[in-house]
């Protein structure tokens, strides 16, 4: 479903060119749970941005669900993100002035879904991630684990092809981390494709497949 072929991406930082991704090729099939592990500065964030269509590669080919990403316009990228990708960020990235339901509704709103219908969907997914009864809470009234659950519900609500989770447990304590990881595993068992990016080997191990990234290069299946 995801095909990366010879992806290159470099940045100019203080006059020096840094190769963040060096000829990366990578495939993900439907229903997989892949974790990409690497230390900071390894290029995993860049890979995540490119996979999530927040950034475009300098060269190489990225095919997501039969769509060639290189040719897509800014608006087209927004549309694909909206329909095919669910983001789960390390710092949750919820809209602070909106309650749980409204946060989950955001991707549905940009899809042009009717308000009543999107509320219904939002309630459903909040219940699914175990937040029944907390629908009207603002992010500030929720614990870190609960906020991440809202973020997961938001990612799921759009019924995406893949969930991109960028250090989803990075800001959580070990108990809630475990709960969030269990939730992700459950979702994967239901058939949800998940790509998880982390620097924590214990988190990475919980995926079915592990890919290591270092200095912009991918190494399949080698666990440190």
């Amino acid at each position: 479903m995801i095909k990366l072929k010879n992806i290159n991406k470099s940045f100019v930082l203080g006059g020096e060119t840094i190769k963040a991704l060096d000829n990366v090729s990578f495939n993900v099939e439907k229903g997989e749970f892949v974790s990409i592990i690497g230390p900071s500065g390894s290029g995993k964030s860049t890979l995540m941005n490119i996979l999530g269509l927040l950034d475009v590669a300098d060269s190489g080919e990225y095919i997501l669900d039969d769509i060639k990403i290189k040719d897509a316009s800014d608006n087209k990228l927004s549309e694909i993100r909206n329909k095919k990708i669910g983001f789960v960020f390390q710092n949750f990235n919820l809209l602070t002035k909106m309650n749980a339901v409204e946060n989950v509704q955001v991707p549905l709103m940009y899809r042009g879904e009717k308000h009543d219908k999107s509320i219904k969907t939002a309630y459903e997914y909040l219940a699914k991630v175990g937040l029944k009864g907390r629908e009207k809470h603002l992010p500030s009234q929720l614990s870190g684990g609960q906020q991440q659950r809202v973020a997961i519900a938001r990612a799921l609500a759009g019924n995406p092809e893949i969930i991109l989770a960028d250090e989803p447990t990075g800001a959580l304590d070990s108990k809630t981390s475990r709960e969030v990881m269990e939730l992700l595993q459950e979702l994967n068992e239901e058939g949800q494709t998940i790509i998880l990016i982390t620097h924590d080997i214990n988190v990475a191990k919980q995926a079915k497949r592990i890919v290591k990234i270092a200095d912009g290069k991918l190494y399949e299946g080698e666990v440190i």
Binding site: N75, E79, R81, N82, K83, F87, N93, L95, V106
Partner: peptide
Amino acid sequence: TKEIGIRKALGAKRMD
């Protein structure tokens, strides 16, 4: 800025 970033990541187009 952050809100705009989140909205864009979730599928907001420039026009939105």
